[in-house]
Nucleic acid binder design. Structure first.
Ligand SMILES: [Mn+2]
Ligand SMILES: [Mn+2]
Ligand SMILES: [Zn+2]
Ligand SMILES: [Zn+2]
Lengths: 136, 136
DNA sequence: TATTTAAGGATAATCATTATGGATTTTAAA
DNA sequence: TTTAAAATCCATAATGATTATCCTTAAATA
């Protein structure tokens, strides 16, 4: 969180109570929340905060490279404060997203990639979380 | 396409000219089109077709397991008539999606997966297509 | 051909996200 | 401390994709 504040100062972005609350909520957050998740949480402290503020703060964080946007849930965008390269496991039932910090060799064979310039990759694992497996 | 018709007949779904046109458009289609792409194309033959019809047909195909919905483009859903297990390469510039038919070993280590039940995976590769690389 | 039932199409509704604009707050300078 | 400029807040409107509704039309089947 400290470094988020620093980065913001560095580029003339102001530190407001709303933003600090969002930083704090995201800091070390492993739940991959949606904009609404964040909005609902921050609203407990700042009941007048607007969705626009949440979206704009997320946009600013993304632009600083301090936040990733996940396109893994077809219903809504999810955000990930863990910006190191990692992969995800999503429960097909409750949509919970869990980090997978493992290194996989996924070199695309030359003939398959053609003259594409390869820049990165992301693996989505699908499965059932322990809770949902129990429920059936 | 034939087998799509058969599956539809088997479950009391009617074969209409609009649906056949969509089947035909999707058959062997490697472009991963959006609902709008499909709508615009079919409209050439059936100028009165509605978006609702496109969405409903896609939904029916999905339910039959004849079509996959991709959550790889944050702006809109893309559809994939290739339902065999494969991966994708997306151009971060023009959003073109290309199939990668290669087999990768991506076994999640026991300690990372916990008691999740693993059911599948999908790898998204990010890069620049030859055309976009040229443009800079 | 008649009957049944699903599908088509126009359009409204919904939901997530983005844009706008005036009031407020922060920051820096005077 | 006062002032001014810039950034942010939030209410709200706009947008764009997707889903729902409802009435008319057409496909299937006997
Ligand atoms: Mn993550
Ligand atoms: Mn594909
Ligand atoms: Zn679950
Ligand atoms: Zn491209």
């Amino acid at each position: 969180m400290d470094f988020k504040m620093k980065k913001f100062r560095d580029i003339n972005l102001k530190l407001t109570p709303q933003r600090l609350a969002i930083f704090e909520y995201l800091d070390d957050n492993k739940s991959h929340p949606s904009a609404e998740d964040i909005y609902l949480e921050i609203r407990k402290k700042y009941p007048t905060i607007s969705f626009a503020t949440v979206y704009k703060t997320l946009e600013a964080l993304k632009k600083q490279g301090l936040l990733l946007e996940l396109t893994i849930d077809p219903e809504r965008r999810r955000y990930d404060p863990g910006t190191e390269h990692h992969h995800h496991l999503i429960c097909i039932d409750c949509k919970k997203i869990v980090d997978i910090h493992a290194d996989f060799r996924v070199d695309v064979p030359e003939d398959a990639k053609g003259s594409f310039e390869m820049l990165g990759n992301h693996i989505e694992f699908y499965g059932l979380c322990p809770e949902c497996k129990k429920k059936g």
